[in-house]
């Protein structure tokens, strides 16, 4: 049971780790790392869904008849691109936050905002 569904267990584990980091960490960069792990867990989920047991890569050949489903893999390529764009934007925001405030620690940022 555990071994058959190893990928899916890992999806859940990674997802929870990611979410926990996003919620619990104070540092804006660490939060982003958590967010990235969280997104990656969903990528793994899609990739696992598309895998057919014993199937080969979906490339046309006369000898193979059993293929993995390429569609989820294609979908997740799109999602990975979206993830990269999100991460780039988020990091750019953090750079500007650092310039404007001089810190990337959430607690200190709150304090700076409350003071003015």
């Amino acid at each position: 049971m555990f071994y058959d569904l190893y990928n899916y267990w890992m999806v859940i584990v990674l997802m929870m780790i990611g979410l926990y980091i996003v919620i619990s960490r104070n540092n804006l960069i660490k939060k982003l790392i958590g967010l990235n792990i969280f997104q990656t867990s969903v990528f793994i989920f899609y990739i696992s869904v598309g895998k057919v047991d014993g199937g080969t890569a979906p490339i046309f050949s006369s000898t193979e008849t059993l293929y993995s489903n390429p569609l989820p893999h294609v979908l997740i390529l799109t999602a990975i691109v979206v993830g990269i764009a999100t991460m780039a934007l988020a990091l750019a925001l953090v750079v500007r936050i650092k310039r404007a405030y001089g810190t990337v620690e959430d607690a200190e940022l709150q304090e700076l905002d409350n003071r003015c």
């Binding site: 979410l19 996003v22 939060k31 967010l35 997104q39 999100t86 925001l93 404007a100 405030y101 940022l109």
Partner: peptide
């Protein structure tokens, strides 16, 4: 306002979780 940056960051985190 520089707080716009933080607001955008916060929205990005929550929005990405929602979309994921």
């Amino acid at each position: 306002d520089r707080r716009a940056l933080l607001a955008a960051y916060q929205y990005l985190i929550l929005g990405t979780i929602g979309a994921t």
